[in-house]
Deep mutational scan, measured.
Amino acid sequence: TYTFKVDNKDQAKKAAKWAKKLGLSFQIEKHGDTFKITVQ
């Protein structure tokens, strides 16, 4: 499981695209202005 934080929606979208490309499941949680992405 890999967790990282991004500062904006664009970065969150890029991370989601990357995870989908690799066939991984992911969750994006919004914490105020940051997004926490968990990829597994």
Results as ranks from 00 to 15, higher is better:
residue 17 K to C: 10
residue 15 A to M: 12
residue 14 K to E: 07
residue 27 Q to I: 14
residue 19 A to D: 00
residue 11 Q to K: 12
residue 23 G to F: 03
residue 24 L to P: 00
residue 27 Q to K: 13
residue 19 A to Y: 10
residue 10 D to K: 14
residue 13 K to D: 12
residue 33 D to Q: 09
residue 10 D to H: 14
residue 5 K to T: 15
residue 6 V to S: 02
residue 23 G to R: 04
residue 21 K to Y: 06
residue 8 N to P: 02
residue 13 K to E: 10
residue 36 K to G: 03
residue 22 L to G: 03
residue 1 T to R: 11
residue 1 T to M: 10
residue 28 I to Q: 03
residue 32 G to P: 02
residue 9 K to V: 13
residue 7 D to L: 09
residue 33 D to R: 07
residue 14 K to D: 05
residue 38 T to F: 05
residue 36 K to H: 14
residue 21 K to G: 08
residue 39 V to E: 00
residue 6 V to W: 03
residue 15 A to K: 04
residue 15 A to Y: 15
residue 11 Q to F: 06
residue 30 K to V: 09
residue 38 T to D: 02
residue 36 K to E: 13
residue 26 F to E: 00
residue 2 Y to A: 03
residue 27 Q to N: 09
residue 8 N to S: 13
residue 34 T to C: 05
residue 1 T to Y: 13
residue 18 W to Y: 05
residue 9 K to G: 07
residue 12 A to I: 06
residue 21 K to E: 09
residue 24 L to G: 01
residue 39 V to Q: 00
residue 7 D to P: 09
residue 18 W to G: 02
residue 2 Y to H: 06
residue 2 Y to T: 04
residue 7 D to I: 09
residue 35 F to N: 01
residue 5 K to L: 15
residue 17 K to N: 09
residue 28 I to K: 03
residue 23 G to I: 02
residue 16 A to I: 14
residue 19 A to Q: 01
residue 11 Q to D: 11
residue 12 A to D: 00
residue 17 K to Q: 13
residue 12 A to W: 03
residue 16 A to H: 06
residue 23 G to W: 02
residue 16 A to W: 11
residue 38 T to P: 00
residue 29 E to A: 07
residue 29 E to P: 00
residue 15 A to P: 01
residue 19 A to K: 00
residue 13 K to V: 10
residue 1 T to V: 12
residue 26 F to W: 06
residue 26 F to G: 01
residue 5 K to W: 15
residue 35 F to Y: 14
residue 32 G to M: 05
residue 29 E to W: 07
residue 31 H to I: 15
residue 1 T to A: 11
residue 8 N to F: 04
residue 30 K to G: 05
residue 8 N to M: 03
residue 29 E to I: 09
residue 8 N to R: 06
residue 10 D to W: 15
residue 19 A to R: 00
residue 25 S to N: 11
residue 11 Q to A: 14
residue 38 T to Y: 05
residue 26 F to K: 00
residue 37 I to Q: 00
residue 12 A to E: 01
residue 22 L to R: 13
residue 34 T to K: 14
residue 39 V to K: 00
residue 23 G to N: 07
residue 40 Q to V: 11
residue 10 D to C: 11
residue 37 I to L: 04
residue 30 K to S: 08
residue 27 Q to R: 13
residue 24 L to W: 07
residue 14 K to V: 08
residue 11 Q to T: 07
residue 26 F to C: 12
residue 30 K to I: 09
residue 24 L to H: 04
residue 32 G to E: 08
residue 20 K to T: 10
residue 35 F to I: 06
residue 4 F to M: 03
residue 4 F to D: 01
residue 16 A to D: 02
residue 15 A to V: 15
residue 27 Q to S: 13
residue 8 N to Q: 04
residue 34 T to A: 13
residue 19 A to G: 03
residue 9 K to N: 06
residue 9 K to Q: 09
residue 22 L to V: 06
residue 30 K to F: 07
residue 7 D to E: 12
residue 40 Q to R: 12
residue 35 F to K: 01
residue 18 W to R: 05
residue 38 T to N: 03
residue 22 L to E: 05
residue 30 K to A: 08
residue 5 K to F: 15
residue 4 F to P: 01
residue 14 K to I: 08
residue 18 W to M: 05
residue 20 K to F: 07
residue 10 D to V: 12
residue 19 A to V: 04
residue 36 K to N: 09
residue 24 L to V: 04
residue 28 I to L: 06
residue 27 Q to T: 14
residue 7 D to Y: 13
residue 40 Q to T: 13
residue 21 K to N: 09
residue 35 F to L: 04
residue 12 A to F: 04
residue 34 T to D: 07
residue 24 L to M: 08
residue 22 L to K: 13
residue 40 Q to S: 14
residue 22 L to W: 09
residue 21 K to D: 07
residue 29 E to K: 07
residue 39 V to T: 02
residue 33 D to N: 11
residue 3 T to P: 02
residue 13 K to S: 08
residue 29 E to F: 06
residue 21 K to R: 10
residue 11 Q to G: 07
residue 9 K to D: 06
residue 25 S to I: 12
residue 26 F to D: 00
residue 39 V to Y: 05
residue 15 A to G: 02
residue 11 Q to I: 07
residue 12 A to S: 03
residue 31 H to L: 13
residue 6 V to A: 05
residue 16 A to Y: 12
residue 38 T to H: 06
residue 22 L to Q: 10
residue 13 K to H: 08
residue 24 L to T: 02
residue 25 S to E: 10
residue 27 Q to D: 07
residue 13 K to Q: 10
residue 20 K to C: 07
residue 32 G to K: 06
residue 30 K to Q: 12
residue 1 T to E: 11
residue 24 L to C: 14
residue 25 S to G: 07
residue 14 K to R: 13
residue 11 Q to P: 01
residue 19 A to F: 14
residue 5 K to G: 06
residue 38 T to V: 07
residue 15 A to F: 15
residue 8 N to A: 04
residue 18 W to Q: 04
residue 12 A to R: 03
residue 37 I to P: 00
residue 1 T to C: 13
residue 8 N to D: 07
residue 27 Q to L: 11
residue 24 L to A: 02
residue 11 Q to R: 07
residue 9 K to L: 15
residue 38 T to L: 05
residue 21 K to Q: 09
residue 19 A to T: 01
residue 40 Q to P: 03
residue 6 V to Y: 07
residue 24 L to Y: 11
residue 35 F to H: 02
residue 25 S to H: 11
residue 22 L to M: 13
residue 35 F to V: 03
residue 9 K to W: 15
residue 6 V to Q: 01
residue 6 V to R: 02
residue 2 Y to P: 02
residue 27 Q to V: 14
residue 7 D to W: 10
residue 25 S to V: 12
residue 32 G to I: 03
residue 14 K to F: 07
residue 10 D to L: 14
residue 34 T to Y: 15
residue 14 K to L: 09
residue 23 G to M: 04
residue 14 K to Q: 09
residue 8 N to E: 03
residue 3 T to I: 12
residue 34 T to L: 10
residue 25 S to W: 11
residue 9 K to A: 13
residue 23 G to C: 04
residue 40 Q to G: 13
residue 39 V to M: 06
residue 6 V to H: 01
residue 7 D to V: 10
residue 11 Q to N: 05
residue 34 T to W: 14
residue 39 V to L: 10
residue 2 Y to E: 02
residue 17 K to E: 12
residue 16 A to G: 06
residue 26 F to I: 14
